[in-house]
Nucleic acid binder design. Sequence first.
DNA 1: AATGTCCAGTCATACGCATAACCCGACGAG
DNA 2: CTCGTCGGGTTATGCGTATGACTGGACATT
Lengths: 347, 347
Amino acid sequence: MAATNGKQPTMWDVATRAGVSQATVSLVLNDAAGRRVGKTTRARVLEAVQDLGYRTNAYARTLRSGESGMVGFISDEIATSPFAGKLLKGAQLHAWETGQVILSIDTFNDTELEAAAIDMLMSYRVRGVVYAAMYHRVLDLPEALAGIPTVVVNARERSGLVHSVFPDEERAGYAATRHLLDSGHRHVAMINIQPEDSTLPAGIGRLAGYRRALAEAGIAYDPSLVRYGSGVVEDGLELTRDLMTTSSEPPTAIFCGNDRTAWGAYRALEGLGLQVPDDCSIVGFDNQDTLAPFLDPGLTTLELPYEQMARTALQLLLDPTGEPPADHPIDCSLVVRRSVTSAKVHR
Amino acid sequence: MAATNGKQPTMWDVATRAGVSQATVSLVLNDAAGRRVGKTTRARVLEAVQDLGYRTNAYARTLRSGESGMVGFISDEIATSPFAGKLLKGAQLHAWETGQVILSIDTFNDTELEAAAIDMLMSYRVRGVVYAAMYHRVLDLPEALAGIPTVVVNARERSGLVHSVFPDEERAGYAATRHLLDSGHRHVAMINIQPEDSTLPAGIGRLAGYRRALAEAGIAYDPSLVRYGSGVVEDGLELTRDLMTTSSEPPTAIFCGNDRTAWGAYRALEGLGLQVPDDCSIVGFDNQDTLAPFLDPGLTTLELPYEQMARTALQLLLDPTGEPPADHPIDCSLVVRRSVTSAKVHR
DNA sequence: AATGTCCAGTCATACGCATAACCCGACGAG
DNA sequence: CTCGTCGGGTTATGCGTATGACTGGACATT
């Protein structure tokens, strides 16, 4: 075991102990091309490595080889957001599998800090940078990133000069609505999570998907069944109450733009003496793991593909496929729980 | 701006452009000891640096100086837990302030992966390792970490050979209970988050704090007011219902061992036609940001000091205070919302 | 026997930087 | 005028590793 006296052992120490040259140690340890080392020598070297607890010095290796094993991961406060580390997790997993190391930094939404952080990443000669956004939006890359291979994740980069990986909101909205339609609902409302004039991709896409599903089912789009909130519990509550009480013909199902809104919907329905899902089915969005499973009944909802997005991003970054920058929408998956049931036969 | 043609520029490139020697460039850039460089030369160098977009090669610097600027951060699935990145955030902030870089890896609770990850950290010659646990517990350090400066955070290391930084559960339990007592409650229940025979520090500590507060207030400990669940919503619901219906004298306040349990309590009370806080005050634990603020009324609860724990840990790791390894309980803070009111004058 | 081939290693070098050691010219003191 | 001092640099070196160039013997071929 490592004799942790003073410095870490070097290849020279190993070589001396094994009675070979430093070069031989390097050859043994890197195996690879033209394995020109004898069996017994190799064994002696490996034994010496073991005895000394030798670990190759990553700095020396990188310096010599000129190839950094690091990838930068820049996020704006994402490491502390609830959806949080899921992106980081995906990135770490993929990185690990491909022998890379993630150098992750959080800019805390401070431009100055961000510039400094990027500088730091450059110091470490990262092979590329994954630029992760906290919520799905359109963004401009910071200047400092110009010239470094970059992939944007959970957002779309405006200029189109780099790959962007983000959730396919439209298909998700379609899937949610389709799930309700397939259960026989014909009168499906939607509570969006942003004002009607907002340009955020999430709300726009989900609504578009909702409309496509309706159209496909031959159901006329009824604007009075679509409400606009801001994604908080209270809005879900009020808008649901409004939907159920002021409509000439109340919906039998509601697609909520996020789980918090869905929670509000639950409350509103409960307040009105209505049951989920019997009186009104609900589909949420986000599969927020501290919420969706714990609502009663469990919330059927869509899950954002954080891990997959991160993996895709890393792949685009590390793989030398020469394809030009593009947008990469990733599918969300439907998580079925108990908040959807088939529509009552008549109403 | 950086002429990103081919390789990154080196100090030699800068030196050539500025008409000085490489050593001079180094001197300018590191400023420090005996600033023996002329004003104009310095300016020329800095200009060349700017022009070329030069950035110090961290690998070369580290190799030469022998001093790594990296700190390892090992976590078991914490990067994806809901409380998540908060520890990472604290660590990153402190690291940044002291010029360090965090190399964070997630072991995903895989011992083999963990060993490999530690190896990798050693390769990067990290100055030390922060070993973060997902939930407060007692743990043994992995063998591979022997010999590297390590600080355990959000857990207590069994052997006592390293510093351990964790939440002061007892004081937190005391604070929660005290808050209720100070509001005039004399009949305060507690719903713990683990079985009575469990040895996890959270439940044990919080209960101890509860008892101390009661004792201090001269209130006899009544075992029938303490229930044991497992921290999930359903338990909170059932145990609260039980508390309120089977007690000869139901409590006017409940200290719930976590926010999810508190959510269950809200539901139970609502089901019984009781109001929070008027009929029963509630204090939670965790300040789960996707839950506590959204309960109605907002939940008064305790917040775990993740960021502070991480900072303390990093400080212990980086600062050369020679003090022997010890336990470092960190205070939790009470977050007051609207779920506690003064006890009814009589009952 | 002379030549060629191949195997199993060794030598030497450069990656980019920090820093100890040295060096040169100017200026002030004696 | 000479010497000491000091500011403003330069030269040389080594950190630990990977790798191209080389070597010395064993064995096979002609």
